[in-house]
């Protein structure tokens, strides 16, 4: 999901125009979508979007937002300009996380209760296949080169490598307990996966599918069992990666070349998901229990602002 936003950001950046972007945040307990102007640091408005909205992504042409409304058992298609609901996708029960492929014509949904990944054709709005994976699939992503879909199953503790051509699992990698989020580097060469209960980040070589490095986090004054990595994002030049550490209330900054943890940035409470600004100068974080988003300036590596958005901010997507 993030990867697709990233691809989109690249496209936007190449146009070269510096213009105000819009940040969309799903509010799990408000059943709404928050619209934020991040440069002004202001909440513009909040619009109802359906029951228990969680996962969110924007189409490559920036025209549509896809929003998983879990308690409606559907993924809503929302016009990104006027925020009207224009359609629904057959996601299966209780959709939470999903990923778009780079072309935006396929959407892969984790069906947590049924141990399935549902493949949806976005043009026809039809489910075209279901793939059996491990218990409680959650994190899901598509590689920027559209070769792999990765599904992480939380209870089986595995990453499933699904071939996008055959739509079948070709490999499985055992990782640390409760894998949550997965993200490829922009060159599709590495896969980064967070493990919430082990408090680790695993970096894998996408070609050999072998683990390159496992990173643990340590924060003075925070007990290890509160360090629960969730969202992960890597910048396009693979200089730095960022990991949201959940109830540790911090984002870890990792040197993506040496894999050293450079610093921890204090953000809001239970930081969950991350998204870059189109020019990758800022990082936006959703903070579940402090009901705000944090804006991190990536040049200075400082948290510059927090913006109150509503109850239980969950997912975040950015429109240039």
């Amino acid at each position: 999901m993030k990867k697709n936003c990233l691809a989109l950001f690249l496209a936007a950046a190449s146009i070269g125009a510096v213009q105000a972007e819009t940040v969309f945040v799903t509010l799990e307990k408000d059943n709404a979508l928050a619209v934020v102007d991040p440069l002004e640091g202001k909440l513009i408005k909040t619009v109802p979007v359906g029951q228990r909205p969680r996962g969110i992504a924007i189409s490559p042409d920036n025209k549509y937002l896809y929003i998983a409304t879990s308690d409606d058992d559907t993924i809503k298609i929302v016009d990104a300009a006027n925020l009207a609901v224009v359609g629904e996708l057959p996601s299966g029960d209780d959709p939470e996380t999903f990923a778009l492929n780079p072309a935006g014509d396929r959407l892969y949904v984790s069906n947590e209760d049924d141990s399935l990944v549902t493949v949806i054709d976005t043009a026809s709005k039809k489910a075209i296949k279901q793939i059996q994976v491990g218990v409680e699939p959650e994190g899901i992503t598509v590689s920027p080169d559209n070769r792999w879909v990765i599904s992480a199953s939380e209870t089986t503790n595995m990453l499933h490598w699904i071939d996008t051509q055959s739509l079948a699992i070709s490999d499985n990698t055992l990782v640390d307990p409760r894998p949550r989020a997965v993200s490829f580097t922009a060159d599709s060469q590495q896969l980064w996966a967070t493990s919430e209960m082990a408090g680790t980040l695993t970096i894998l070589d996408a070609n050999t599918k072998q683990i390159l490095k496992s990173i643990s986090f340590e924060i003075p004054g925070v007990s290890n069992d509160k360090i629960q990595p969730v969202g992960v994002a890597i910048d396009k030049d693979r200089n730095r990666g960022y990991v949201a550490l959940g109830p540790a209330n911090r984002v870890a900054v990792i040197n993506a070349q040496t894999f050293e943890v450079e610093r921890y940035l204090l953000v809001g409470q239970r930081v969950w998901n991350l998204a870059f600004s189109p020019d990758q100068k800022r990082l936006y974080t959703t903070n579940g229990t402090s009901n705000d988003i944090s804006i991190i300036d990536l040049e200075s590596q400082k948290v510059t602002k927090s913006v109150g958005v509503g109850l239980y901010p969950w997912g975040v997507a950015v429109k240039p």
Binding site: I131, Q132, I169, S170
Partner: peptide, 20 residues
């Protein structure tokens, strides 16, 4: 309802088995 929905999905779609 859930069971029916699931049944329909199973019925319509080819479920791919994992690599065992």
């Amino acid at each position: 309802l859930r069971i029916i929905v699931k049944f329909l999905l199973v019925f319509q779609l080819l479920i791919t088995s994992p690599v065992y």
